[in-house]
Design a protein around this nucleic acid. Sequence first.
DNA 1: GGGATCATGTAACAGGTTACATGATTCA
DNA 2: TGAATCATGTAACCTGTTACATGATCCC
Lengths: 212, 212
Amino acid sequence: MRRAPAGDEEAGSEQFHSGMPAEHALLGLLALSNDGTGHGYELARQFGPDAPLGNVIRIEPGMVYHHLKKLERLGWVESVPGAAGRPARRPIALSEAGRIEFNRWLAEPVAHTREIRLDFLVKLYFALLLDPRVAVRLVNEQREICQRIIESLSERRKAGHGDDPPSPAHRFGDLVLEMRLAQTEAALAWLDRVGPEAGHAVRTSESAADTA
Amino acid sequence: MRRAPAGDEEAGSEQFHSGMPAEHALLGLLALSNDGTGHGYELARQFGPDAPLGNVIRIEPGMVYHHLKKLERLGWVESVPGAAGRPARRPIALSEAGRIEFNRWLAEPVAHTREIRLDFLVKLYFALLLDPRVAVRLVNEQREICQRIIESLSERRKAGHGDDPPSPAHRFGDLVLEMRLAQTEAALAWLDRVGPEAGHAVRTSESAADTA
DNA sequence: GGGATCATGTAACAGGTTACATGATTCA
DNA sequence: TGAATCATGTAACCTGTTACATGATCCC
């Protein structure tokens, strides 16, 4: 469950990986369905090309069954006992524990800039569809984390400028810090554009609730 | 040797992974040493914290021996037969095939924006230390690839704007494309700053050669 | 009938991760 | 003597990947 420390954002840091985006995406698809159930093949299609999620995370059909078995072991999904559809389906239901775990994961921003490309986008996808207010909160918390990363990288860069002329190792270290700064600043600027859009979704869903 | 198609930059594309950055970094460290040899423990230290490479790619000591065995299987390194140092060292030498493979890898820019953080930075580290002209070429070719990625993403974004009002799936697709555009543009801007610095290194090494 | 697609999985393999085992040497 | 560091690795475990096997059903 723990991930490789290879190429970590921060120096070989602590924290358990927020990840398992594939598994949580499966939970999310079940949460999205009306009755909280689905079956392997149907879920697998949502990760193919031409599906919105397929642009962010690609999962081979075989892996879907693999992940579902793991989710069953974790108690986050359950095989529906009675119902077996006409073409030999095996319906899977999101368990209560699974729903709690999914909501926990969904509300949590990612700790590293590199996780924005995959983990954060998957979270955002479900947050926008399930509850725009969760999406707004998620984007705001992610913005704060990006700002903190930027501060920390800026400090480290300033701290490195003690000697002159700088050693090759120092110059390379600066390049690395500047690369990360550039990536994180780009992510922050993008989040600043995304936020208002999610907010708009909140207002429209609120007015829909008002008229209802 | 092939990598997961999960979260690929382009839609579930083809290409073999340029990667194996850990293994190539080990080859690079051997290439950097005067006699092209080294041993596990010494190599492992270069991936710890406080080492320049440790900021980019972290490798646990145990993994170093793992990778060295794999490199030996591939014929890219060889155990030095005679020499065994005082504290039970097992010296490893870069083979001719290993040097060729390393140079091939070093000259190749990465195909995806997400690989810049790890693979490209490792390449740049060795290119700057081994031959600044290789570094300049690498940066320039990487810039071209980033420009092509930006063009392709821009086209895809324009192509998506056919219907109105846009569906939620479309709006999400746009967010994803804008995220990737922002990341790739940030990488390109960074490369534009890195290029001149590498060029400076070329000029100083040339003038050093002139005076020699 | 027969091809597409629905639907589920397994077997075999490749690889990475952690933690531990082992022992020599150095130096306070 | 005993702690730190040098130095090499292995064992157990988990995850992921590919490719294949299996069979039903739908529709022409």
